[in-house]
């Protein structure tokens, strides 16, 4: 069982890294810094609903860590990890209190990710002017959350895990 779980998690991390790569190939719509679709969030959300909270954290944390040491700068690591962790924390909390369906939780994750990143940016470069981006970041996070929510809803309902746990 333990080996199975490790293999499974490794596979999820690999999938989420590939999704990050695929997303980087999509044409970038530049409006404000930090907006993205968040395809890599799909395996994380799947883990939230089908595996354990710690699995979701592991998948996201290891993906960001690996991508950062392979391709990115330390600064982008700080941004990604902040956005990622805040997003997962909010999704786990709202999953726990059972107020929303997958769609609502995905939207919360998207918005929390964007707000987390802008707050850390305000802190790092010490420019409250970045808060001008707030409205567009909320809208972008909501729309991305809806798109990811639709996909996750399909996956969570259709994929049966190979082990009962």
């Amino acid at each position: 069982m333990k080996t199975k779980r490790i293999t499974f998690l490794a596979m999820f991390i690999a999938i989420s890294m590939i999704l990050s790569y695929l997303e980087s190939l999509l044409p970038q719509i530049y409006i404000v810094p930090g907006i993205k679709l968040g395809l890599a969030n799909i395996p994380v959300m799947f883990a939230i609903f089908k595996l354990k909270p710690s699995d979701a954290l592991l998948i996201s944390g290891i993906r960001i860590f690996l991508l950062s040491i392979l391709f990115r700068s330390f600064l982008s690591f700080i941004f990604s990890i902040t956005g990622g962790l805040i997003s997962i924390a909010f999704m786990l909390f709202f999953k726990k209190i059972n107020t929303f369906s997958i769609m609502g939780i995905s939207v919360i994750g998207g918005v929390a990710h964007n707000l987390g990143q802008i707050l850390i940016a305000v802190f790092i470069v010490n420019t409250p002017g970045l808060l001008f981006y707030l409205p567009i970041l909320i809208i972008a996070g909501t729309l991305a959350g809806i798109a990811i929510g639709l996909i996750c809803n399909l996956l969570v309902n259709r994929i049966q895990l190979p082990f009962p746990d």
Partner: peptide, 15 residues
């Protein structure tokens, strides 16, 4: 896809 009432409220509130 089944949405909860809260999902709709959440999305509208965010907008």
């Amino acid at each position: 896809m089944k949405l909860k009432r809260n999902d709709i409220i959440l999305i509208i509130s965010l907008f």
